[in-house]
Simulated assay, not measured.
Amino acid sequence: MEGLLMCAPTTDSPALRVTSLFLSIDGEVNARGQGTPSFFIRLAGCNLRCWQRFGGCDTVYSFGPGTRMSVEELLARVDAAGCPKVTLTGGEPLLQKGAALAALLRGLRERGVFVSMETNGSIAPDFEGRECVGSLVYDYKCPSTGCTAAMQPFAALFRSLGSSDYMKFVLRDPADYAFARERVLEARELRDGRPCPVLAFSPMLPTAADGLPPDALVAQLLADRLFEVQVNIQMHKYVWPDAKTEV
């Protein structure tokens, strides 16, 4: 794990608004696997405000304007890190879809870097440069977030993703599990032999007193025979449970 790399101001164009850059391991599901070393580019800004009833999300620091960085600077930071995988996250990275994001993605592909992108379910995957993303990881918001109404229609989103992509559901309580289970049953009707994204259930940690701890989640998932679902235990929260900075 490497500490936070601070962003320097730039006036070059094209550019993206960046919250932070850091080298760590990827604690979430993606096509390269959890625990894979990755260079993180956390873009600034988010269009959702999840879990307002429970104190908000765990990356509120990414909601601000960030620091403007040119694509050339970002690619230079990737080169210096020397890591063959990049994770684009936020905030919400697709709020900045356009020429600059496409240029960054194409520059990463030219370098042979594998890119995973973590995004919420509110924006369809129709952005320029999508062909350069090796794994799209959609965080489809469950009822406890208060943001389910902002999600893309599940069927349309599911059909637009491929076998290296993921749709994950962060579960805080049994109501979230029931919602995610219905989406799995819906997905069974949508498969019809085409390449489909992987579905993943992630227990929210720490769980509330009335929450859904990992052992209860696994027991319920097996009892319901949801055998196509992966359980996503967020590895970084176990490696650095008390972290105060980016890891």
Rank of each mutant, 00 (worst) to 15 (best):
P214E: 02
A187D: 13
D139T: 07
Q230T: 11
D26C: 08
Q234C: 11
G112F: 06
H236W: 05
D165S: 12
R106Y: 10
A15K: 06
G112C: 09
G56H: 03
C7A: 15
A76P: 02
V218A: 14
M117V: 09
R172Y: 10
C83L: 04
L161C: 08
G56K: 06
V198F: 12
L226A: 04
S122Q: 05
D58F: 04
P143S: 13
T207N: 11
G64I: 07
A44V: 09
M6H: 14
A178M: 08
L185I: 13
R172N: 13
Y140E: 05
T89R: 04
A150G: 00
V137Y: 10
A99V: 10
E72R: 12
G3F: 07
M6N: 09
L185H: 11
P195A: 09
A81M: 03
A216D: 14
Q234R: 14
A175M: 03
F158Y: 15
T87R: 03
A216I: 01
A100F: 07
C7K: 01
R49N: 12
V198D: 08
G66S: 11
T148E: 13
L21G: 05
G121N: 09
L94V: 08
F158M: 04
D173E: 15
E110K: 11
A44Q: 08
V229N: 02
Q230D: 12
R181D: 09
S163Y: 06
Q52S: 12
V78A: 05
D210Q: 13
L226S: 01
G64Q: 11
L161H: 09
E182H: 11
A200F: 04
F39K: 01
C83S: 13
S24E: 03
R42M: 03
F127P: 07
T145R: 08
D210C: 06
Y238F: 15
Y177P: 09
T67F: 06
V113I: 15
G121T: 07
S122I: 02
L108T: 05
R77M: 13
F127D: 04
F114S: 09
A180Q: 10
L5K: 10
M1P: 11
A102N: 11
F154A: 02
S163D: 15
V170G: 02
C132W: 06
A200K: 06
A100Q: 07
V137D: 10
E182Y: 02
S202Y: 01
S164N: 15
E73Y: 00
F154Q: 07
G112E: 08
T36H: 00
G146Y: 05
V113T: 12
A15N: 01
I233C: 10
E73T: 09
A8P: 00
C57S: 04
L217D: 01
A223E: 11
A81C: 00
E186C: 12
D79I: 01
L4G: 06
D12P: 05
D176V: 11
Y61I: 10
A15C: 10
S160D: 12
I233S: 06
P125V: 04
D165R: 13
A243D: 06
S62R: 01
C147N: 09
P206E: 06
T59N: 06
P125D: 02
A103I: 00
Q52I: 02
L21P: 08
N47F: 09
R172V: 13
S24Q: 07
R106C: 08
D12K: 13
T119E: 06
R106D: 15
V231Y: 03
G134H: 03
E118Y: 03
A103E: 08
